[in-house]
Amino acid sequence: MTQLFQPGQHIVFIGDSITDCGRRDLHEPYGDGYVNLVRAFVTARRPELHLRWTNRGISGNTVRDLAGRWDDDAIALQPDWLSVMIGINDIWRFFTGRADEAVPIDEYEQTLRGLLRRAVDATGCRLILADPYIIEADAAEPQRVETERYGKVVEALAEEFSALHVRTQQAFDRALASTDSADWARDRIHPNLPGHAVIAEAYLAALDITSS
């Protein structure tokens, strides 16, 4: 195993409600979702690294919102690693009567690429990019089709920036082979705790973290 994290490094997560998960109120500072699970398991497996963790998810965010707070919530924190999961709201709002707030795929790609470039150039951080997802087994369902398109953007950006790529859609697809969407989320988007564990497992697989 290649050791990705070095002692004392700072890992920052930024994104929407899936990342936020109560980190600003009832479950501060890490939230009660995948971020806290990843933090807990990495800490348990590699306690000697004494890593620092910061959650900067905000519910409802699109990539446009990230652009508005990028300097304060990403660059100013000087992360060694920056994890970005964004795109679910950018897509979802096309399907919930809020098309003016949705982000077309070309804008999504251009904006996200620009933010990642600024972060890397300003801090030298390494990137972890997680796919947007929908917990929907029907590959022909319209929102699922769009989610796949945006996921391809993230995949390409991960390659472009030599980032770790967290395949969250693929992880849920494996789970859905023997379960229903409602087992993981009431609305196909916001996971229950087992659903967050699916995401966390995808992160741990990408990080390839084992015990020392």
Rank of each mutant, 00 (worst) to 15 (best):
A175N: 00
L176N: 02
P132K: 01
A202F: 00
D121M: 08
R69E: 03
W53D: 07
I75N: 09
Y30P: 02
S212W: 10
L77T: 04
G114W: 01
R174G: 06
V145F: 10
E101L: 15
P79Y: 04
R144I: 00
V145Q: 08
A171V: 05
Y133I: 05
V12T: 06
T54S: 14
R118I: 03
V120D: 05
I75A: 12
Y133W: 08
D173V: 01
L204N: 05
A122H: 05
G151D: 04
D32Y: 09
D25H: 13
T168H: 02
R174P: 03
A137Q: 09
A185M: 00
G8C: 12
F161I: 05
V153Y: 03
Q110K: 12
E109T: 13
R167V: 02
V35S: 01
R45G: 02
Y108P: 05
R149N: 12
N55E: 04
D100W: 10
V198I: 15
Y34S: 01
I58D: 02
V120E: 06
T168K: 03
H190W: 06
G68K: 12
D121I: 09
F94D: 15
Y203H: 11
R126G: 11
D180T: 13
R64I: 06
I14C: 08
L82K: 08
T168D: 03
L164T: 07
E28K: 13
G60Y: 02
E107K: 06
Q6P: 07
I209C: 15
R117P: 04
A206V: 06
V153M: 01
A130M: 00
R188M: 14
G97F: 00
H10Y: 01
S83T: 11
F5T: 07
A206I: 04
C125T: 04
I135L: 07
A163S: 14
D73A: 10
A137G: 15
L115R: 02
P132W: 01
D80W: 03
G31L: 01
I14Q: 11
A175K: 15
I11M: 03
